[in-house]
Structures are given as C-alpha cells and as structure tokens.
Design a protein around this nucleic acid. Structure first.
Lengths: 362, 362
DNA sequence: CTGAAAGCGCTTACAG
DNA sequence: CTGAAAGCGCTTACAG
C-alpha cells in the first residue's frame, strides 16, 4: 500500500506493527499512519499468517452451540479473543452432544490452539491436533494430561449446595435425574450427590438416566415418581431435565414444590421462564469461556516469548481477568482454575410434604 | 511436502486440486495421493488464500448467538459451509440485539462474503464491507438493494395463521406484545396483525412494546391485562415474550388458556418447556441459515466462474437445498427466497371465556 | 506430460 | 535510520 501511498516500502510493517522506534524516523512513521488511515488499509491476514506461521485463530470445540450454556461459553471466549485480535472458529459439530469426530480434518483454518469443553470421555482421544497445538480443556477432567490448562466450574460444590439445600428443607428421599451423557461433568454430579447423601446418612438416590432434553427429563421423572416410597425431591443434572421433571409432576397431579421439589443446573433462560421458576445452580459460562481463552493466549504467549499479547495489548491478558478465578488468575500452562458457582433458590423447591423443616436444621 | 515424500514439486497441487487429468501421469498422481495420505498432508490455507485471493470464509452477523434462533441459524449455515470447505466466522457482537458496529474493523480473517440476519434497520448502513463483498440478507427487508440475495421466513404468513387461529376460536379483543426492536421482521409482524384484524372487522390491537426477554414480556403483559375490556388473547412477537405473558397471567390469577390465550413465535425449546406449552409459529431457522449460505456460495460461484463449488462438490449446491424454498431454490444473485412457516397449536390457546366457538366458524 | 519460475502480501534479518 | 531482498507455501501460467 504505502508504496503508492507515501514513503518507503516495508517501513509500513514496522510502523503498523508498533516496532519502529529507533528504526523509522518519526516523520515517516506519521506519514505511514496517515496513509493507512486514508486508505483504510488493513494488512492481509493470509500473508501475515503465511509469513509468521501463526494465524491468530483458536478452535472452540463444543458439543452443540444451540445449547445456551455453550452459546454463552462461546460468547465469553469470542469476546476475549477479539480483544486480542484473535478469531474463534467453531468446530461444526452436528446437533447433539456427541463428541467431535475429526475437527482437524475439515478444511478449517490453520489453528494456533484449541479449546474444548465438556467433551465426552471417549472424545479426548480423538482430539489429536497435529504438531502439538496447545489445548485448553473446559469443564473437563483436570487429570487429563494432554491439556496445557484446564478451566473448570466448581460442579461438585454446586451439587453439594443443592444437596445441602434439600436436606435442610427436610428431604431425605431424593432421586437423581441424570443426563445420559458420558462426560466428566455429569460423572462429578452423580458422584457428589451420592457422596453427600451417604455422608448425611440418607438412602442412596435412585438414578434415572435421561436423554438431555425436556422430553427426556419428563420421561425419567415419570419413572422416578412412580417409585414407592415416592421421592420428595428430584435432583436434575440440567435445567432442561428439570423443566421436564416439573412437567412430569404436573402430569401426575403433583404440585411443585408442595408435593415434590425439583432442582436444576445451569440457570438457563428457561429456568426463569417456567412456573414455578427453577432452583438451580448458576454456572458462569461466559466467564469460563473467557478464562479459557485467556489461558490459551497465555500459553501461546509463553511459547512465542510474548509475541502474541504484546503486539496488541501490552500483555495485559492476565490483568483483565474476570474475578473469582482463584488467586492465580486464569491459569498458566498446566494449571487448573476452578470458577465458583452458586445455588440460586427459587420456587421449585420447598419442604417435603408432611415433613416441615425442623427448627435448628438450617 | 511431496518434494521430500515422493515425486515432483507442484504436481502435488494439480493432483490434490483434482485438475491433473492430461497434465500428470496416472502413476505419479497415485504416488502423490499415497504420500499425502501417509504424511496426513494438508495444504496450508494461508498460502492458498494468499495465492488465490479468496479465503473460503464467510462472516455471519447476528444480533446474539445466545438466542436459540440465531444459534440454529448458525448451525445450518455452518453445516452447508463445511460441506463446501468453507468456514464461518461470527461477528463477535456484544450481548443483546444491538446492530453490529464495525464487523470489518476487527482483526478478523479476510472474508469472501457476508451473511447478515435480522439486523436493526439502522444497522444496514453500517454494513459496509469494503471491496464489494457479496452480502446475503436473512430475515430482512427484501427491498434493501445492497444484498446479492435475500432469504426470508414467511413471517407475514405466520402472523396471518396465528390471527386466523385466534379469530377462529372466537377471540376479538387481541393485544400485541411487541418486541421493542426496530427491525424489519418485527415491523412485519405488527403490520400484518393490525391488517388482519382490520380485515376481519375487529378492533385494532393494543400494542405493548416489550424488551425482548421473559421479564420484558411479563411486564408488557401485565399492562395489557390491566386494560378494560381485558384482551382475551395476547399475541407475542417471540416465545420469550409469550413465556413472560403466561407468567403475567398467572400472577394476575388468570388461567391460560381458559381466561386468556397466548401465542408466540419461533418455537424455541422453551415453547415446550413451559406449562401449558405454547401455541407458536415454528420458524425454520436452520434451513434459513443453510439457504443463506447456499445463496452466498452461488453468488461466489457465479463471480468466479464455478471455482468455488466445483473444486469440491461439482456444483451441487443448488441441488442439495432443503425443500420448501420455492420453485427457484435457494436463490441466485439478487433474488429473494421465502421459506414457509407453520403455526403449531398447543395448549396456550383456546376459546375466549364466555364465548365458545360458534359452530361453523372453523 | 514434466520441470523450473513467478508472485500473492507480508515480516524480518541484512547490508548500507 | 533506510532500502533492497529473502522467503513463508501455495497455484498457475510458461517453456521444454
């Protein structure tokens, strides 16, 4: 551009790249900037990528973007990426929670790194980015060693809060409407619920596997509520399942929460649309996406000696983190960050029938 | 790659590009393919883009991906894109339905084309892709001349079906819970509803603007239901608003549909999660996204003399279209395609109180 | 049919 | 401080 527009040739690169001090005279630099402004010049990213060997592009692998949780996750990741001149490409996964098959076989862009969230257990092996691409795992088993960093939500604590809330209300007979998805995040929910009940001296929960949808939750809850003695609370792995559980109760002539309490997970828009509104664990999805992207950028930065972040932001990645990520921030290579979650109590839970809260028990 | 792996140099390009017949001997061609398989070779897309001047990347501009409608739209567009070796990048728009400010100022990839959906009226002017990038509009004013093609949903027909359904049940006093978003799609809904009621000799509907959310719908519906005579049906621009309207009714001690009927638009997951389930217009969002991408690919193809599609699929774009796009298919340059929509009747509508359906009136 | 070369637009050493 | 050049990995004319 500047060849025609003003002054020299590749001084443009130096000036626009911000590394001209002591290499280009101030007058020339200003001329370059003026010309760039004038022509609305933008460096060709393909040429840039070819030269640099980096693409400023991250792949985000999620089970399904039509799930609001993952849409929020994407939103947070894309925001942070954009702040640093990065793009996000989504693995075009088919509908459903199936794992990605071969994200790297598609004609996608070349990638600088990968962020994968909530993958099914078996899908980890399939994640084989060639050439040692940095991989950040979200909502996944921190023991997975392939990951440069892991950003998790405190799923276990969310389930503990849920259980404590129900036990505090006086419930003893719980059923678990469990997502029929073989992933770490749902495994934690099941184990934590079972463990908390055991610790409280309650009977083990009935476990009803459910397809991850409103209809699936309804079917599983119908079965759960047919058992005798009937459970007084249904702990659902997800708000969709919880909405379905509420429908099942109503269909059976039971009132929520008077006859049966229902809890969810996620705090989707849906949680406040249904009646009664759902008691659910709010998961900071957008923050998780943002933290995941920050962690990836940090890994990239450390591998290139600061080239990733400095070129645009002066390396402020770790300063702009969303609070709550623990004292160490969004996580450097190999680290695991766990974001706190919080139970939001709404109308779908109450004391069990014929068993009012005993004073002193919370 | 093949330099080290097997035979010649740029014969690789010919062979892998599928244009080697009569230019490379069959033996060599096979050797190249074997080597490529062996090394899991993939051409560097940056180099390819630099050379070709095309990036096989489309920008999808939507108000907010956390809205399920747009997530589905994206899903359809991404699927078709992937089938043709294209990528989709999303404009990283902030939450909310605000228009995109400057999709092209970001450090995004270079683009081959743009698909924009449901933009606010004022946002059209801001859509200024440099260099005459092809633009496909979705769910937008077909009069907008900047677009190479337009893919619409038959919003007007959906509203007519809704109105006919309610009038058929005996309703005469309708209120319109209208999304407070200045876009073509919501303008059509308002005009069509008003027109249909006028044509039927009914009073004009009260129009209550509402923020596009459950809470917004609830607030507007509370106001609508405070009017006297009270409307017997609330026509909502969106399922979120409809869910809010149901909550408002319940809060006022009114039953849905016995005391007041409620209709929505979109057929989101939410529509079947609430109780009663929503009567709503199902919008084929994924098909619209797919048709939009097909239209864009067709434009690109015509501009490059077939290079876009032939290289991978033999130009089968227009053959693989989802049915229902009208006799002309997904649309060539400058054309408008309108996808049909269908009212889905569920539990949130019924006869008005004290006005049973008169026999013969549908 | 085969091979050597040009050139897409950048960035970064490398001589002046 | 300035300028001319190399080279990232492709694709496509262009001579043999």
């Amino acid at each position: 551009m500047a060849r025609a527009a003003g002054v020299s040739q590749a001084a443009v690169s130096l000036v626009l790249g911000g590394k001209w001090h002591g290499r280009v005279s101030p007058g020339k630099a200003e001329a370059v900037r003026a010309a760039a402004r004038e022509l609305d010049y933008r460096p060709n990213p393909a040429a840039r990528s070819l030269r640099l060997g980096r693409t400023r592009t991250a792949l985000l692998v999620v089970p399904a973007l039509t799930n609001e949780f993952f849409a929020r996750l994407h939103s947070g990741a894309a925001r942070v990426a954009a702040e640093h001149g990065f793009g996000v490409v989504l693995y075009p996964s088919p509908e459903g929670t199936g794992p990605a098959r071969d994200p790297f076989g598609s004609a996608s862009d070349a990638l600088d790194g990968v962020i994968a969230s909530s993958m099914a257990s078996g899908a980890l092996a399939a994640l084989r980015p060639g050439g040692g691409l940095p991989l950040v795992m979200l909502d996944s088993d921190p023991e997975h060693t392939r990951a440069s960093a892991t950003v998790n939500l405190d799923i276990a604590d969310g389930m503990r809060q849920t259980t404590a809330h129900l036990l505090g209300l006086g419930h003893r007979g719980l059923a678990h409407i469990a997502a029929a998805v073989d992933s770490w995040t749902f495994g934690v929910r099941a184990r934590t619920l079972a463990g908390a009940l055991r610790a409280a001296g309650c009977p083990a929960p009935a476990v009803l596997p459910a397809e991850l949808s409103v209809a699936g939750g309804m079917r599983a809850a119908m079965a759960a509520l047919a058992a005798r003695p009937r459970p007084t609370a249904l702990v659902c792995d997800d708000d969709l399942l919880a909405a379905g559980a509420c429908k099942a109760a109503r269909r059976l002539g039971l009132r929520v929460p008077e006859d049966v309490s229902v809890t969810g997970f996620d705090d989707l828009t849906l949680a406040r649309a249904v009646e009664p509104e759902l008691t659910t664990v709010r998961l900071p999805a957008e923050e998780a996406g943002a933290a995941g992207m920050r962690a990836l950028l940090a890994v990239l930065d450390s591998r290139t000696g600061g080239a990733v972040l400095d070129s645009r932001t002066g390396g402020a990645v770790l300063d702009s983190r969303t609070g709550g990520g623990g004292p160490e921030g969004a996580g450097g290579p190999g680290r695991t960050v766990t974001l706190p979650v919080e139970l939001t109590v709404r109308g779908s839970t109450g004391p069990p029938p014929e068993a009012p809260v005993r004073p002193g028990e919370r």
